[in-house]
Design a protein around this nucleic acid. Structure first.
Length: 509
DNA sequence: GGCGGAAATC
DNA sequence: GATTTCCGCC
Protein backbone atom coordinates (compact mmCIF):
# COMPACT_ATOMS: atom_id res chain seq x y z
CA UNK A 1 0.00 0.00 0.00
CA UNK A 2 2.58 2.42 -0.92
CA UNK A 3 0.01 4.69 -2.26
CA UNK A 4 -1.06 5.67 1.16
CA UNK A 5 2.41 5.95 2.44
CA UNK A 6 3.37 9.41 1.59
CA UNK A 7 4.93 10.88 4.61
CA UNK A 8 2.23 13.14 5.71
CA UNK A 9 -0.69 11.36 4.32
CA UNK A 10 -2.82 14.27 4.89
CA UNK A 11 -6.30 14.04 3.69
CA UNK A 12 -5.62 17.15 1.85
CA UNK A 13 -8.37 17.84 -0.48
CA UNK A 14 -9.81 14.46 0.04
CA UNK A 15 -12.78 15.63 1.95
CA UNK A 16 -11.11 15.45 5.30
CA UNK A 17 -9.82 18.19 7.40
CA UNK A 18 -6.74 19.93 6.39
CA UNK A 19 -4.68 19.77 9.47
CA UNK A 20 -1.89 22.03 10.30
CA UNK A 21 1.54 20.63 10.33
CA UNK A 22 1.77 20.55 14.03
CA UNK A 23 -1.02 18.09 14.12
CA UNK A 24 1.43 15.60 12.87
CA UNK A 25 4.10 16.14 15.32
CA UNK A 26 4.61 16.69 18.92
CA UNK A 27 6.79 18.98 20.81
CA UNK A 28 9.40 16.40 21.09
CA UNK A 29 9.49 15.63 17.49
CA UNK A 30 9.56 18.90 15.78
CA UNK A 31 9.89 18.46 12.15
CA UNK A 32 8.34 15.11 12.13
CA UNK A 33 5.23 14.91 10.17
CA UNK A 34 4.67 11.36 10.96
CA UNK A 35 1.86 10.35 13.05
CA UNK A 36 2.86 8.84 16.27
CA UNK A 37 1.79 5.48 17.34
CA UNK A 38 -0.23 6.54 20.30
CA UNK A 39 -1.97 8.93 18.09
CA UNK A 40 -2.72 6.23 15.67
CA UNK A 41 -3.94 3.98 18.39
CA UNK A 42 -6.33 6.62 19.50
CA UNK A 43 -7.54 6.90 16.04
CA UNK A 44 -8.31 3.29 15.83
CA UNK A 45 -9.98 3.41 19.15
CA UNK A 46 -12.08 6.21 18.04
CA UNK A 47 -13.46 4.34 15.15
CA UNK A 48 -16.16 1.90 15.56
CA UNK A 49 -15.16 0.11 12.45
CA UNK A 50 -12.03 -0.96 14.20
CA UNK A 51 -13.76 -2.06 17.28
CA UNK A 52 -13.08 -5.61 16.44
CA UNK A 53 -9.43 -4.86 16.18
CA UNK A 54 -8.89 -2.60 19.08
CA UNK A 55 -11.29 -1.25 21.59
CA UNK A 56 -11.57 0.46 24.87
CA UNK A 57 -11.61 -1.86 27.73
CA UNK A 58 -14.59 -1.95 29.90
CA UNK A 59 -14.31 -0.60 33.31
CA UNK A 60 -11.07 1.15 32.90
CA UNK A 61 -10.73 4.60 31.62
CA UNK A 62 -8.18 4.82 28.96
CA UNK A 63 -7.58 1.17 28.91
CA UNK A 64 -7.81 -0.54 25.64
CA UNK A 65 -7.40 -3.98 24.29
CA UNK A 66 -5.81 -4.91 21.10
CA UNK A 67 -8.08 -7.60 20.00
CA UNK A 68 -6.30 -8.31 16.83
CA UNK A 69 -2.64 -7.52 17.30
CA UNK A 70 -1.73 -8.58 13.85
CA UNK A 71 -4.32 -6.40 12.31
CA UNK A 72 -3.36 -3.43 14.35
CA UNK A 73 0.21 -4.01 13.41
CA UNK A 74 -0.77 -4.31 9.86
CA UNK A 75 -2.66 -1.08 9.94
CA UNK A 76 0.19 0.61 11.63
CA UNK A 77 2.61 -0.79 9.18
CA UNK A 78 0.43 0.36 6.43
CA UNK A 79 0.30 3.77 7.84
CA UNK A 80 3.99 3.93 8.26
CA UNK A 81 4.78 2.14 5.10
CA UNK A 82 6.35 -0.61 7.03
CA UNK A 83 4.97 -3.74 5.53
CA UNK A 84 7.12 -5.79 7.79
CA UNK A 85 5.48 -4.37 10.81
CA UNK A 86 4.18 -6.86 13.25
CA UNK A 87 2.85 -6.84 16.71
CA UNK A 88 6.20 -7.55 18.18
CA UNK A 89 7.60 -4.42 16.72
CA UNK A 90 4.56 -2.42 17.38
CA UNK A 91 4.51 -3.52 20.94
CA UNK A 92 8.09 -2.50 21.26
CA UNK A 93 7.10 0.93 20.21
CA UNK A 94 4.32 0.85 22.69
CA UNK A 95 6.71 -0.14 25.36
CA UNK A 96 8.72 2.90 24.69
CA UNK A 97 5.68 4.79 25.74
CA UNK A 98 5.96 3.37 29.17
CA UNK A 99 8.86 5.54 29.90
CA UNK A 100 7.16 8.47 28.43
CA UNK A 101 4.18 7.65 30.50
CA UNK A 102 1.90 7.87 27.61
CA UNK A 103 0.91 4.32 28.08
CA UNK A 104 1.34 1.58 30.50
CA UNK A 105 0.67 -2.03 30.33
CA UNK A 106 -2.23 -3.56 32.07
CA UNK A 107 -0.65 -6.46 33.70
CA UNK A 108 -2.27 -9.75 33.45
CA UNK A 109 -4.31 -8.78 30.48
CA UNK A 110 -3.07 -9.70 27.14
CA UNK A 111 -2.72 -6.99 24.62
CA UNK A 112 -4.16 -4.59 27.04
CA UNK A 113 -2.69 -1.19 27.58
CA UNK A 114 -3.82 1.89 29.21
CA UNK A 115 -3.42 5.43 28.22
CA UNK A 116 -2.17 7.77 30.75
CA UNK A 117 -4.54 10.52 30.03
CA UNK A 118 -3.16 12.34 32.90
CA UNK A 119 -0.25 12.76 30.72
CA UNK A 120 -1.96 13.10 27.48
CA UNK A 121 -4.94 15.10 28.32
CA UNK A 122 -4.11 17.23 31.20
CA UNK A 123 -1.50 19.34 29.62
CA UNK A 124 -4.00 20.31 27.10
CA UNK A 125 -6.78 21.19 29.38
CA UNK A 126 -5.44 23.40 32.04
CA UNK A 127 -8.64 25.28 31.94
CA UNK A 128 -10.46 22.60 33.72
CA UNK A 129 -11.95 24.24 36.66
CA UNK A 130 -10.78 23.17 39.97
CA UNK A 131 -12.43 23.91 43.15
CA UNK A 132 -10.32 24.92 45.97
CA UNK A 133 -10.88 22.82 48.95
CA UNK A 134 -7.41 22.44 50.04
CA UNK A 135 -4.00 23.46 49.18
CA UNK A 136 -2.27 21.84 46.43
CA UNK A 137 1.21 21.79 45.22
CA UNK A 138 1.97 23.81 42.24
CA UNK A 139 2.56 20.78 40.29
CA UNK A 140 -0.77 19.36 41.07
CA UNK A 141 -2.75 18.11 38.16
CA UNK A 142 -5.91 19.70 37.13
CA UNK A 143 -8.46 17.70 38.85
CA UNK A 144 -12.09 18.15 38.37
CA UNK A 145 -14.07 18.90 41.38
CA UNK A 146 -17.14 17.40 42.78
CA UNK A 147 -19.45 18.38 40.08
CA UNK A 148 -19.03 18.47 36.41
CA UNK A 149 -16.68 21.26 36.22
CA UNK A 150 -15.23 20.61 32.94
CA UNK A 151 -15.91 23.71 31.14
CA UNK A 152 -15.19 23.26 27.62
CA UNK A 153 -15.39 26.20 25.44
CA UNK A 154 -17.77 25.61 22.68
CA UNK A 155 -15.84 24.98 19.64
CA UNK A 156 -17.47 26.19 16.63
CA UNK A 157 -15.58 27.56 13.77
CA UNK A 158 -18.40 29.87 13.20
CA UNK A 159 -18.94 30.95 16.69
CA UNK A 160 -18.38 34.52 17.48
CA UNK A 161 -14.85 35.43 18.25
CA UNK A 162 -15.95 36.79 21.51
CA UNK A 163 -16.48 33.33 22.72
CA UNK A 164 -13.35 31.41 23.02
CA UNK A 165 -10.45 32.44 21.06
CA UNK A 166 -8.24 29.65 20.08
CA UNK A 167 -5.20 31.71 20.21
CA UNK A 168 -5.96 32.86 23.62
CA UNK A 169 -6.69 29.47 24.82
CA UNK A 170 -3.62 28.03 23.41
CA UNK A 171 -1.60 30.69 24.93
CA UNK A 172 -3.26 29.93 28.14
CA UNK A 173 -2.37 26.37 27.90
CA UNK A 174 1.10 27.27 27.28
CA UNK A 175 1.21 29.68 30.05
CA UNK A 176 -0.21 27.23 32.43
CA UNK A 177 1.89 24.34 31.51
CA UNK A 178 5.08 25.85 30.49
CA UNK A 179 7.38 28.54 31.52
CA UNK A 180 7.86 27.04 34.83
CA UNK A 181 11.29 28.24 35.32
CA UNK A 182 10.49 31.73 34.40
CA UNK A 183 7.41 32.35 36.32
CA UNK A 184 6.24 29.14 37.73
CA UNK A 185 6.74 30.32 41.22
CA UNK A 186 4.78 33.41 40.70
CA UNK A 187 2.02 31.91 38.81
CA UNK A 188 0.38 30.38 41.70
CA UNK A 189 0.22 33.52 43.57
CA UNK A 190 -0.88 35.70 40.83
CA UNK A 191 -3.60 33.60 39.54
CA UNK A 192 -6.66 33.30 41.62
CA UNK A 193 -8.08 29.92 41.61
CA UNK A 194 -10.51 29.24 38.94
CA UNK A 195 -13.48 28.53 40.85
CA UNK A 196 -16.69 26.95 40.29
CA UNK A 197 -18.59 26.15 37.36
CA UNK A 198 -19.92 28.70 35.12
CA UNK A 199 -19.00 29.46 31.62
CA UNK A 200 -18.21 32.89 32.83
CA UNK A 201 -15.78 31.45 35.24
CA UNK A 202 -14.26 29.40 32.61
CA UNK A 203 -13.79 32.41 30.51
CA UNK A 204 -12.44 34.26 33.40
CA UNK A 205 -9.95 31.57 33.90
CA UNK A 206 -8.99 31.74 30.34
CA UNK A 207 -8.62 35.42 30.63
CA UNK A 208 -6.51 35.12 33.62
CA UNK A 209 -4.33 32.55 32.13
CA UNK A 210 -4.21 34.36 28.97
CA UNK A 211 -3.21 37.55 30.54
CA UNK A 212 -0.48 35.70 32.22
CA UNK A 213 0.49 34.17 29.03
CA UNK A 214 1.26 37.57 27.80
CA UNK A 215 4.10 37.53 30.21
CA UNK A 216 5.11 34.04 29.50
CA UNK A 217 4.64 34.62 25.88
CA UNK A 218 7.31 37.17 25.87
CA UNK A 219 9.72 34.62 27.06
CA UNK A 220 8.93 31.68 24.99
CA UNK A 221 7.30 33.16 22.07
CA UNK A 222 9.75 32.12 19.51
CA UNK A 223 9.15 28.57 20.26
CA UNK A 224 5.50 28.85 19.86
CA UNK A 225 3.87 27.31 16.96
CA UNK A 226 0.82 28.70 15.42
CA UNK A 227 -2.20 28.22 17.50
CA UNK A 228 -4.93 26.78 15.54
CA UNK A 229 -8.24 25.52 16.50
CA UNK A 230 -9.32 22.45 14.81
CA UNK A 231 -12.83 21.36 14.35
CA UNK A 232 -12.15 18.19 16.11
CA UNK A 233 -15.01 18.35 18.44
CA UNK A 234 -17.54 19.63 16.17
CA UNK A 235 -19.56 16.54 16.43
CA UNK A 236 -20.52 15.63 19.88
CA UNK A 237 -21.36 12.12 20.49
CA UNK A 238 -19.49 10.53 17.74
CA UNK A 239 -17.75 8.27 19.99
CA UNK A 240 -20.06 5.46 20.74
CA UNK A 241 -18.01 3.61 23.24
CA UNK A 242 -19.17 4.17 26.74
CA UNK A 243 -15.87 3.04 28.04
CA UNK A 244 -13.91 5.46 26.14
CA UNK A 245 -12.60 8.39 27.99
CA UNK A 246 -13.92 10.17 25.03
CA UNK A 247 -17.29 8.75 25.33
CA UNK A 248 -20.27 10.57 24.24
CA UNK A 249 -21.05 13.36 26.44
CA UNK A 250 -24.20 13.03 28.38
CA UNK A 251 -24.64 16.69 28.23
CA UNK A 252 -26.76 18.08 25.56
CA UNK A 253 -25.31 19.92 22.71
CA UNK A 254 -21.89 21.26 22.62
CA UNK A 255 -21.94 22.37 26.13
CA UNK A 256 -20.86 19.05 27.42
CA UNK A 257 -18.47 18.24 24.77
CA UNK A 258 -14.90 18.81 25.18
CA UNK A 259 -14.48 21.29 22.50
CA UNK A 260 -10.94 21.99 22.95
CA UNK A 261 -8.81 23.92 20.69
CA UNK A 262 -5.75 21.97 20.14
CA UNK A 263 -2.53 23.66 20.33
CA UNK A 264 0.92 22.41 19.79
CA UNK A 265 2.17 25.12 21.94
CA UNK A 266 2.41 23.00 24.96
CA UNK A 267 5.77 22.98 26.39
CA UNK A 268 4.99 20.71 29.20
CA UNK A 269 5.23 17.51 27.41
CA UNK A 270 6.14 16.05 24.15
CA UNK A 271 3.27 13.77 24.42
CA UNK A 272 0.57 16.24 24.49
CA UNK A 273 -2.72 14.95 23.67
CA UNK A 274 -3.29 17.18 20.84
CA UNK A 275 -5.34 14.68 19.17
CA UNK A 276 -6.36 15.13 15.69
CA UNK A 277 -7.51 12.55 13.34
CA UNK A 278 -4.76 11.04 11.46
CA UNK A 279 -5.02 11.66 7.84
CA UNK A 280 -3.64 8.34 6.94
CA UNK A 281 -6.73 6.52 7.74
CA UNK A 282 -9.10 7.87 5.35
CA UNK A 283 -12.19 6.43 6.92
CA UNK A 284 -11.38 8.44 9.95
CA UNK A 285 -11.77 11.74 8.45
CA UNK A 286 -15.45 11.52 8.56
CA UNK A 287 -15.69 11.59 12.26
CA UNK A 288 -12.69 13.27 13.52
CA UNK A 289 -14.02 14.22 16.80
CA UNK A 290 -13.40 13.49 20.34
CA UNK A 291 -15.92 14.22 22.86
CA UNK A 292 -15.32 13.82 26.49
CA UNK A 293 -17.72 12.62 28.96
CA UNK A 294 -17.08 15.11 31.67
CA UNK A 295 -18.24 12.88 34.40
CA UNK A 296 -16.11 10.04 33.39
CA UNK A 297 -13.18 12.16 32.72
CA UNK A 298 -13.67 13.77 36.02
CA UNK A 299 -13.53 10.48 37.75
CA UNK A 300 -10.69 9.31 35.75
CA UNK A 301 -8.70 12.40 36.25
CA UNK A 302 -9.37 12.51 39.85
CA UNK A 303 -8.26 9.00 40.27
CA UNK A 304 -5.22 9.84 38.34
CA UNK A 305 -4.60 12.79 40.49
CA UNK A 306 -4.87 10.78 43.59
CA UNK A 307 -2.60 8.25 42.13
CA UNK A 308 -0.09 10.86 41.45
CA UNK A 309 -0.28 12.16 44.91
CA UNK A 310 -0.36 8.88 46.59
CA UNK A 311 2.44 7.56 44.58
CA UNK A 312 4.45 10.61 44.03
CA UNK A 313 4.09 10.38 40.39
CA UNK A 314 6.17 12.66 38.44
CA UNK A 315 5.08 16.20 38.72
CA UNK A 316 5.49 16.27 35.08
CA UNK A 317 2.15 14.74 34.93
CA UNK A 318 1.06 17.72 36.85
CA UNK A 319 1.11 20.69 34.73
CA UNK A 320 1.16 23.68 36.86
CA UNK A 321 -2.25 24.97 36.86
CA UNK A 322 -2.53 27.65 39.35
CA UNK A 323 -6.16 27.16 39.85
CA UNK A 324 -5.85 23.55 40.44
CA UNK A 325 -6.81 22.44 43.82
CA UNK A 326 -6.62 18.97 45.03
CA UNK A 327 -7.78 18.20 48.45
CA UNK A 328 -4.69 16.55 49.78
CA UNK A 329 -6.42 14.52 52.34
CA UNK A 330 -9.03 13.30 50.07
CA UNK A 331 -6.90 10.96 48.21
CA UNK A 332 -7.16 7.85 50.11
CA UNK A 333 -4.60 5.30 50.70
CA UNK A 334 -4.66 1.86 51.90
CA UNK A 335 -5.27 1.56 55.54
CA UNK A 336 -2.08 -0.28 55.93
CA UNK A 337 -0.17 2.27 54.07
CA UNK A 338 -1.78 5.42 55.17
CA UNK A 339 0.26 5.60 58.26
CA UNK A 340 3.52 5.51 56.56
CA UNK A 341 2.64 7.22 53.44
CA UNK A 342 3.80 10.61 54.22
CA UNK A 343 7.17 9.97 52.85
CA UNK A 344 8.18 6.93 51.08
CA UNK A 345 11.39 5.62 49.97
CA UNK A 346 11.50 4.14 46.65
CA UNK A 347 14.24 2.09 45.27
CA UNK A 348 15.46 2.88 41.87
CA UNK A 349 13.55 1.50 39.03
CA UNK A 350 14.06 -2.11 38.75
CA UNK A 351 14.82 -2.57 35.20
CA UNK A 352 16.03 -5.89 34.32
CA UNK A 353 19.55 -4.86 34.86
CA UNK A 354 18.83 -3.34 38.13
CA UNK A 355 16.94 -6.32 39.20
CA UNK A 356 19.67 -8.58 38.20
CA UNK A 357 22.22 -6.44 39.81
CA UNK A 358 20.24 -6.23 42.94
CA UNK A 359 19.68 -9.89 43.02
CA UNK A 360 23.25 -10.74 42.48
CA UNK A 361 25.19 -8.16 44.34
CA UNK A 362 22.79 -6.78 46.80
CA UNK A 363 20.45 -9.31 48.18
CA UNK A 364 19.19 -7.00 50.79
CA UNK A 365 19.54 -3.86 52.67
CA UNK A 366 19.95 -0.41 51.40
CA UNK A 367 22.98 -0.20 53.52
CA UNK A 368 25.05 -2.02 51.03
CA UNK A 369 26.63 0.16 48.51
CA UNK A 370 25.94 -0.66 44.94
CA UNK A 371 28.89 -1.54 42.90
CA UNK A 372 28.63 1.42 40.67
CA UNK A 373 27.74 4.31 42.81
CA UNK A 374 28.62 5.38 46.26
CA UNK A 375 25.56 4.60 48.24
CA UNK A 376 23.04 6.20 46.09
CA UNK A 377 20.12 6.77 48.27
CA UNK A 378 17.50 4.46 47.05
CA UNK A 379 15.00 7.04 47.27
CA UNK A 380 12.74 8.50 44.87
CA UNK A 381 11.63 11.90 45.68
CA UNK A 382 10.46 13.56 42.65
CA UNK A 383 11.38 16.97 41.66
CA UNK A 384 8.75 19.43 41.04
CA UNK A 385 11.27 21.75 39.79
CA UNK A 386 11.29 23.25 36.44
CA UNK A 387 13.44 20.61 35.12
CA UNK A 388 11.88 17.86 33.28
CA UNK A 389 11.21 15.23 35.83
CA UNK A 390 11.28 12.79 33.06
CA UNK A 391 14.96 13.25 32.83
CA UNK A 392 15.16 12.17 36.36
CA UNK A 393 14.16 8.80 35.50
CA UNK A 394 14.59 5.95 36.25
CA UNK A 395 11.70 6.76 38.36
CA UNK A 396 9.36 7.13 35.51
CA UNK A 397 8.92 3.63 34.66
CA UNK A 398 8.60 2.72 38.18
CA UNK A 399 5.84 5.13 38.58
CA UNK A 400 3.96 3.60 35.82
CA UNK A 401 4.55 0.24 37.08
CA UNK A 402 3.59 0.52 40.58
CA UNK A 403 0.24 1.62 39.63
CA UNK A 404 -0.22 -1.52 37.82
CA UNK A 405 1.43 -3.50 40.44
CA UNK A 406 -1.04 -2.25 42.85
CA UNK A 407 -3.63 -4.20 41.10
CA UNK A 408 -1.76 -7.15 39.98
CA UNK A 409 0.35 -9.55 41.79
CA UNK A 410 3.60 -8.61 40.72
CA UNK A 411 6.98 -9.34 39.65
CA UNK A 412 10.42 -9.08 40.89
CA UNK A 413 10.23 -5.78 42.51
CA UNK A 414 7.01 -6.23 44.22
CA UNK A 415 8.54 -5.88 47.58
CA UNK A 416 9.52 -2.46 46.61
CA UNK A 417 6.35 -1.52 45.01
CA UNK A 418 4.05 -3.50 47.05
CA UNK A 419 5.03 -1.70 50.12
CA UNK A 420 6.19 1.51 48.81
CA UNK A 421 3.42 1.87 46.43
CA UNK A 422 0.15 0.68 47.45
CA UNK A 423 -2.81 1.32 45.36
CA UNK A 424 -4.10 4.74 45.49
CA UNK A 425 -7.21 5.02 47.33
CA UNK A 426 -10.58 6.07 46.40
CA UNK A 427 -10.55 9.73 46.15
CA UNK A 428 -13.32 11.55 47.78
CA UNK A 429 -13.97 15.03 46.87
CA UNK A 430 -15.27 17.45 49.30
CA UNK A 431 -18.73 18.49 48.55
CA UNK A 432 -18.74 21.35 46.24
CA UNK A 433 -21.16 24.12 46.85
CA UNK A 434 -22.31 24.11 43.33
CA UNK A 435 -22.83 20.45 43.16
CA UNK A 436 -24.55 17.64 44.80
CA UNK A 437 -21.99 16.54 47.30
CA UNK A 438 -23.22 13.20 48.22
CA UNK A 439 -23.85 12.06 44.77
CA UNK A 440 -20.54 13.31 43.64
CA UNK A 441 -18.68 11.72 46.40
CA UNK A 442 -20.23 8.46 45.61
CA UNK A 443 -19.60 8.86 42.05
CA UNK A 444 -16.03 9.63 42.53
CA UNK A 445 -15.34 6.90 44.91
CA UNK A 446 -16.86 4.26 42.83
CA UNK A 447 -14.17 4.79 40.35
CA UNK A 448 -12.46 1.66 39.55
CA UNK A 449 -8.84 1.34 39.04
CA UNK A 450 -6.79 2.72 41.76
CA UNK A 451 -9.29 2.93 44.41
CA UNK A 452 -9.72 0.24 46.89
CA UNK A 453 -11.74 1.20 49.82
CA UNK A 454 -9.86 2.57 52.69
CA UNK A 455 -10.06 4.49 55.77
CA UNK A 456 -9.60 8.17 55.71
CA UNK A 457 -6.06 9.27 55.54
CA UNK A 458 -4.25 9.84 58.71
CA UNK A 459 -5.60 12.94 60.29
CA UNK A 460 -3.43 15.90 59.87
CA UNK A 461 -3.24 19.12 61.54
CA UNK A 462 -5.16 21.83 59.97
CA UNK A 463 -2.11 23.71 59.03
CA UNK A 464 -0.78 20.67 57.42
CA UNK A 465 -3.92 20.22 55.57
CA UNK A 466 -3.60 23.67 54.27
CA UNK A 467 -0.10 23.15 53.29
CA UNK A 468 0.73 21.99 49.85
CA UNK A 469 1.21 18.29 49.96
CA UNK A 470 4.65 18.61 48.66
CA UNK A 471 5.61 20.97 51.31
CA UNK A 472 4.20 18.62 53.82
CA UNK A 473 6.28 15.95 52.33
CA UNK A 474 9.23 18.15 52.58
CA UNK A 475 8.63 18.81 56.19
CA UNK A 476 8.18 15.23 56.97
CA UNK A 477 11.08 14.40 54.93
CA UNK A 478 13.25 16.79 56.73
CA UNK A 479 12.07 15.39 59.95
CA UNK A 480 12.45 11.86 58.88
CA UNK A 481 15.36 9.88 60.18
CA UNK A 482 18.04 9.43 57.66
CA UNK A 483 16.76 12.26 55.63
CA UNK A 484 19.23 13.36 53.12
CA UNK A 485 19.88 16.29 51.02
CA UNK A 486 17.83 15.78 47.97
CA UNK A 487 20.64 16.81 45.77
CA UNK A 488 23.19 14.39 46.98
CA UNK A 489 24.38 11.95 44.50
CA UNK A 490 21.87 13.21 42.10
CA UNK A 491 19.87 10.13 42.64
CA UNK A 492 17.53 11.58 45.07
CA UNK A 493 14.56 12.84 43.39
CA UNK A 494 12.62 15.21 45.37
CA UNK A 495 8.98 14.76 44.92
CA UNK A 496 8.22 18.12 46.19
CA UNK A 497 8.98 21.32 44.54
CA UNK A 498 12.50 21.98 43.68
CA UNK A 499 14.48 24.28 45.82
CA UNK A 500 12.78 27.12 44.23
CA UNK A 501 9.43 25.58 44.28
CA UNK A 502 9.81 24.78 47.89
CA UNK A 503 10.53 28.29 48.67
CA UNK A 504 7.43 29.43 46.98
CA UNK A 505 5.44 26.68 48.46
CA UNK A 506 6.63 27.67 51.85
CA UNK A 507 5.76 31.18 51.12
CA UNK A 508 2.32 30.14 50.13
CA UNK A 509 1.95 28.11 53.22
C1' DG B 1 3.17 -12.42 25.83
C1' DG B 2 5.94 -9.12 27.51
C1' DC B 3 10.17 -6.59 28.63
C1' DG B 4 13.93 -3.77 27.44
C1' DG B 5 18.78 -3.15 25.43
C1' DA B 6 21.04 -1.95 21.34
C1' DA B 7 21.67 -0.46 16.85
C1' DA B 8 19.63 1.14 12.68
C1' DT B 9 16.52 3.96 10.23
C1' DC B 10 14.01 7.91 8.77
C1' DG C 1 13.40 11.98 18.38
C1' DA C 2 10.41 8.30 17.34
C1' DT C 3 10.24 4.52 15.96
C1' DT C 4 11.94 -0.01 13.55
C1' DT C 5 14.38 -4.07 13.81
C1' DC C 6 16.47 -7.67 16.21
C1' DC C 7 17.16 -10.30 20.00
C1' DG C 8 17.88 -12.44 24.58
C1' DC C 9 15.53 -13.09 28.59
C1' DC C 10 11.62 -13.96 31.81
Amino acid sequence: MKAGCSVAEKPGGGGGYQFPDWAYKTESSPGSRQIQLWHFILELLQKEEFRHVIAWQQGEYGEFVIKDPDEVARLWGRRKCKPQMNYDKLSRALRYYYNKRILHKTKGKRFTYKFNFNKLVMPNYPFINIRSSGVVPQSAPPVPTASSRFHFPPLDPHSPPSDVQPGRFSASSLAASGQESSNGADRKGELPELEDSSAADWRRGVDLLSSRSAIAGGLGHQKRKPDIMLPLFSRPGVYPDPHSPFAVSPLPGRGGVLNVPISPALSLTPTIFSYSPSPGLSPFTSSSCFSFNPEEMKRYLHSQACSVFNYHLSPRTFPRYPGLMVPPLQCQTHPEESAQFSIKLQPPPAGRKNRERAESSEPSGPGTAPATAPVPPRIKVEPASDKDPESLRPSGREEERFREEGAVPSRTTEEEKGTVFARPAAPVWPPGPASSPSAEALEVTDDSEDRPGREPGAPEKKEDALMPPKLRLKRRWNGAPGAREPSKSGRVLWSGPGPRGLATAAADA
